[in-house]
Amino acid sequence: MAARVEHLVTTGTFSLDGGTWDVDNNVWIVGDDAEAIVIDAAHDADAILAALGGRALRAVVCTHAHDDHVNAAPALADATGAPILLHRDDLPLWKLTHPGRHPDGELADGQELTIAGTGLTVLHTPGHAPGAVSLYASELGTVFTGDTLFAGGPGATGRSFSHFPTIIDSIRDRLLTLPPETVVRTGHGDTTTIGAEAPQLDEWIKRGH
């Protein structure tokens, strides 16, 4: 059976630089009836386990290590035996949330993850966070962008570990080069497409945020 994409929204908080905000997060499950991966284990491990429905979890993949994207990762990994995968450049952020726990494996640019016979290519897309990655599944016509690219613009870069020119470079060079029909599945909010976002690049640069 071909891999499919399932969507779960979980609710909690995001904390950084002394502030805390209420957030809704997109959790993405990619797999078939037998096995799956979870992209961004946010807030509620029990809800994610319920959505998995007993399927073998092969990996907990972190697009970046802001606490709202990784706060349920250890509990989900412990419940399933799945490894937590994170880009090494986001270890400083990870340690803010899980100081006594290390990820089980690293994500690297160009790495290929395979689930249910479907490949996902890791694209290092820093800017929102140093180790932010996107996951491109060409066979599914989709890219999982975490908080790098949203419907309507780039992710926030006003807090520690982030950098606006870097996120613009990542989006322009790594994401907007994908086919325009590629569905963009984001860390928060609605999906979009590469074709819908590409014409706005110059406007984002002018806004500078």
Rank of each mutant, 00 (worst) to 15 (best):
116 A>S: 12
103 P>D: 11
60 V>L: 13
194 I>C: 03
135 L>R: 02
135 L>P: 00
140 L>V: 05
165 P>S: 11
3 A>T: 13
170 S>M: 08
38 V>Y: 12
108 A>L: 11
39 I>Q: 08
41 A>S: 14
120 L>W: 05
171 I>W: 11
204 W>L: 07
53 G>W: 09
19 G>R: 14
152 G>Q: 10
117 G>Q: 06
42 A>V: 12
126 P>D: 08
204 W>Y: 13
196 A>L: 09
148 T>F: 04
35 E>Q: 15
187 G>I: 03
18 G>Y: 01
64 H>S: 10
50 A>H: 12
63 T>P: 00
66 H>A: 05
115 I>V: 15
42 A>T: 07
53 G>L: 08
78 D>C: 01
80 T>G: 09
109 D>M: 02
123 L>W: 02
79 A>N: 03
190 D>K: 12
16 L>N: 04
135 L>V: 06
81 G>D: 09
77 A>Y: 02
22 D>P: 13
87 H>S: 09
209 H>V: 08
92 P>I: 07
21 W>Q: 13
190 D>R: 14
100 G>D: 14
65 A>S: 10
6 E>K: 11
194 I>S: 05
125 T>F: 03
176 L>A: 05
194 I>T: 03
22 D>R: 15
45 A>R: 02
32 D>Q: 09
123 L>I: 03
89 D>A: 15
97 T>R: 14
79 A>E: 06
37 I>A: 06
137 A>F: 07
160 S>V: 04
115 I>M: 01
12 G>F: 07
159 R>A: 07
146 G>H: 10
78 D>R: 04
129 A>T: 14
76 L>V: 05
125 T>G: 03
119 G>Y: 00
195 G>K: 04
107 L>W: 07
80 T>R: 08
39 I>D: 07
148 T>W: 06
28 W>T: 15
127 G>I: 04
200 Q>R: 15
126 P>K: 10
175 L>N: 00
109 D>G: 09
181 E>Q: 13
54 G>F: 08
31 G>S: 08
105 G>M: 06
126 P>T: 11
171 I>G: 00
113 L>F: 08
196 A>W: 05
91 L>E: 10
40 D>K: 03
197 E>K: 01
173 D>S: 14
85 L>A: 11
46 D>F: 02
106 E>F: 10
181 E>Y: 04
17 D>A: 14
203 E>Y: 05
194 I>P: 00
60 V>I: 15
101 R>S: 05
200 Q>M: 12
36 A>T: 04
52 L>H: 09
64 H>C: 10
63 T>S: 15
187 G>L: 07
153 G>M: 03
86 L>A: 09
141 G>Q: 08
16 L>H: 07
145 T>P: 00
148 T>G: 02
162 S>Q: 13
168 I>C: 01
166 T>I: 10
7 H>V: 00
70 V>K: 01
71 N>S: 11
115 I>T: 12
131 G>S: 10
129 A>R: 03
8 L>E: 06
46 D>R: 13
29 I>P: 01
165 P>R: 10
189 G>N: 10
